[in-house]
């Protein structure tokens, strides 16, 4: 005999609504932080810390989706071959998700270290693929004039990204103020 599914309880409905809202807010924050990248000239890439933040707190598939979205936004802003940064950010999102799932505690220090590693690794790869392989003359100038300033600005923007994500996560996951998962390393799932 086919079992009739029980209608959702109010608590379940509220949780679903909260999850949906959290997902929408995360995507909105990601898009918001993409705006400065389109300004032209030497600009930070705040989408990288935003993707890392999402991968720290959200579930796997959503993190990967945000990696794709963020990467495509960087490709569009920087006129790099479409998909190149998306591949990188998908890998970063998956790695960060795994790291914070099993190895690292969710803390600001870990977040900033992982962000710095991701930002500078991207610079290294970009430099290698666009300059070293092409044997471009005077390529070191690219570091001092573009890659280093852009990376440092990206690290600076990592702070507002974190401080914007953290309250959203706290509020929408219903974590009491005293139960700070920066200290406990656990989310209230």
């Amino acid at each position: 005999m086919k079992m009739k599914r029980k209608s959702r309880t109010t608590s379940e409905k509220r949780t679903r609504r909260r999850n949906l809202l959290r997902t929408c807010i995360s995507v909105l924050i990601l898009l918001l932080f993409a705006v400065p990248m389109f300004g032209g000239g030497v600009q930070p890439l705040p989408v990288i810390p935003a993707v890392i933040c999402i991968a720290m707190y959200e579930e796997f598939y959503f993190s990967v989706f945000c990696g794709v979205l963020g990467g495509l936004l960087i490709d569009t802003a920087c006129f790099s071959p479409l998909g190149s940064n998306a591949i990188y950010l998908v890998c970063v999102a998956a790695a960060v998700w795994l790291l914070f799932k099993g190895l690292l505690r969710r803390s600001f220090l870990h977040y900033i270290c992982v962000t710095a590693a991701a930002v500078f690794l991207r610079c290294g790869l970009l430099y290698f693929f666009t300059q070293v392989l092409m044997q471009n003359e005077g390529r070191a100038v690219l570091w001092t004039n573009v890659l280093l300033p852009s990376s440092l600005w990206t690290l600076v923007t990592a702070l507002p990204v974190y401080w914007l994500f953290l309250p959203c996560e706290r509020f929408l996951r219903g974590i009491p103020a005293g139960n700070d998962f920066r200290l406990t390393g656990r989310t209230a799932e």
């Binding site: 990967v64 990467g71 071959p81 998909g83 998306a86 591949i87 998956a94």
Partner: peptide, 23 residues
């Protein structure tokens, strides 16, 4: 597996984009 599929898809998009020249 899903991750691999996404990466394969993005690689395809990137190769197509590079092959077009002039993006």
């Amino acid at each position: 597996r899903v991750l691999l599929c996404v990466l394969a898809l993005l690689t395809g998009v990137m190769l197509y984009s590079v092959r077009q020249g002039g993006q």
